[in-house]
Amino acid sequence: MILTARDITKSFGEAPNQTYALRDVSFDVDFGEMLYIVGPSGSGKTTLLSIISGILRPNGGDVVVKDTDIWKLGSDALAGFRLQNIGFVFQDYHLFPRLTTLENVAIPLILRREPWDRSLAEARKTLQVVGLAEKESLPPYKLSGGEQQRVSIARAIVAQPDLLIFDEPTASLDGDTGRKIVAFVKEHILNAQRAIIIVTHDSRIYEYATRIIRMEDGRIVPGTGADHEK
């Protein structure tokens, strides 16, 4: 098991206006899975994703990633844990417009204090994997939306993390491009040593999931995600 979430609860605000975004959410993720978390807007998908990736502290419950109970770590240790073990793909990419595509991809390695030249060399290889080798010296904004998303995927995988987290990866892309990218991820990025968790409400890409968890009102809809659809 790469990830175990147990009884995750999260509320926002104080007593009279307190709203529960998550109630007692539990699930597991295994190596080799491409797990989707789907559901209507406001159902708690982003909140859940943030909690299991060590970004948002839950009110209750435990998240164990690769045998580490991540919410028992201090904030710097947790940042270090994310850096070593988790790769992020954000909905709106979050690439630095004032760095080249290559430098953007190298950032996780640079944060890991890898030497500059080695970081760039590794980033170059990873750009080849996503098919953007020839764009390495361009700033990201010169690239199309689909290309930018591939750059951010390259950045997420450059340091070889075991867990990849995608938040609405196709929301800013047209249907065809979105489908192609997710197909590419399943074909070339997913392997038996890692797991990918994707939050989405784009039903056109459901077919690529190995398993789907459906959320509603801060709860996992009973029965969903129980069976692996591999």
Binding site: A79, H94, L95, F96, I107, L111
Partner: peptide, 18 residues
């Protein structure tokens, strides 16, 4: 201007001190 990118760096794993 760079704030959201700094936020992304934090998410990826940059420490506040860095």
């Amino acid at each position: 201007d760079n704030l959201e990118h700094f936020g992304a760096l934090k998410a990826i794993g940059a420490k506040s001190g860095e």
